[in-house]
């Protein structure tokens, strides 16, 4: 209709997502959407369900119930089409150490059907300031260099959505800072939507536009960093993290609602 702008569909839509392993509910009725260009941070203690949620989004884990839609398509129905437009990097995965950096990137360029792969790889290596590592064996790189090579892999297909699982874990503060700045720059330049999990509160404070706090698989807070701080009446996200972790018991339904979360 003239005069009315179409409402852009969120890049990620998660509805009532639940994952149960034996007697443990790792993700409990999680619902959220991520609009285009937003950096969403998943925060929570170990076992809160961050990594499980990310891996469900990537199709690596099948949900017990609920729906994951990306780019308007159902993950279970259109996995290949979705993954063509997304990418992933994690501190807990690696590229084969016995291949050169350029060889690894060429393999993944093939998997993602990247056109003019050599030029693309060269440009990305330069963007990430690791052009000199092109012919190095991936297994001989330092943690910081490996992280940047992994990032390079994750940008090969010009993803519209990037999922990052603790990308700065195992990095020293200096390199972690560089990686954060790099990610922020890439996001600004390319308008990529990102979902970011981290234990590092500084990561989340610096990078994320919005935070979802998870506790025992349940969303207990959802908002910008300052909103979450206000909701929990704490000064820093680290204080929020410690407060939630040490409170032991789940927040009450009313408390969750107050913080923008989803009561069970």
């Amino acid at each position: 209709m003239p005069g009315i702008e179409p409402i852009e569909r969120p890049v990620v839509e998660v509805v009532e997502l639940t994952k149960t392993f034996a007697n443990t509910t790792a993700v409990n009725r999680l619902s959220f959407t991520v609009p285009r260009g937003q950096i969403l941070g998943f925060l929570g203690a170990n076992g809160a369900g961050k990594t499980t949620a990310i891996q469900i989004l990537l199709g690596l884990i099948k949900p017990t119930s609920g729906v994951v839609r990306m780019f308007g398509q159902d993950m279970e129905q259109a996995r290949i089409a979705i993954l063509q437009r997304a990418n992933f990097t994690s501190a807990y995965t690696a590229l084969p150490g016995n291949l050169k950096v350029s060889e690894n990137l060429t393999v993944f360029a093939g998997l993602y059907g990247v056109r003019k792969a050599p030029e693309k790889i060269r440009a990305l290596l330069e963007l990430l300031e690791i052009g000199h590592l092109k012919n190095s064996l991936t297994g001989q790189l330092s943690s910081g260099e490996s992280t940047r090579v992994n990032l390079c892999k994750s940008l090969l297909n010009d993803p519209e959505l990037l999922l990052l699982d603790e990308p700065t874990a195992s990095l020293d503060p200096d390199i972690a800072d560089k990686v954060r700045k790099l990610l922020k720059r890439i996001q600004t330049e390319r308008g990529i939507t990102m979902i970011y999990t981290s234990h590092n509160m500084r990561d989340v404070e610096e990078i994320c536009d919005r935070i979802i706090f998870l506790q025992k698989g349940r969303k207990i807070a959802d908002g910008t960093g300052s909103q979450v701080l206000a909701q929990f009446q704490q000064k820093t996200l680290e204080d929020v993290f410690i407060h939630v972790s040490r409170s032991g018991e789940l927040l009450s339904e009313e408390e969750v609602k107050e913080r923008g979360g989803t009561p069970p």
Binding site: L60, L95, P96
Partner: peptide
């Protein structure tokens, strides 16, 4: 080989 090099997830999150 892909399990040992922790590359398996990279492959299966690719299309």
């Amino acid at each position: 080989e892909d399990v040992w090099s922790r590359n398996l997830l990279n492959l299966f999150v690719a299309p």
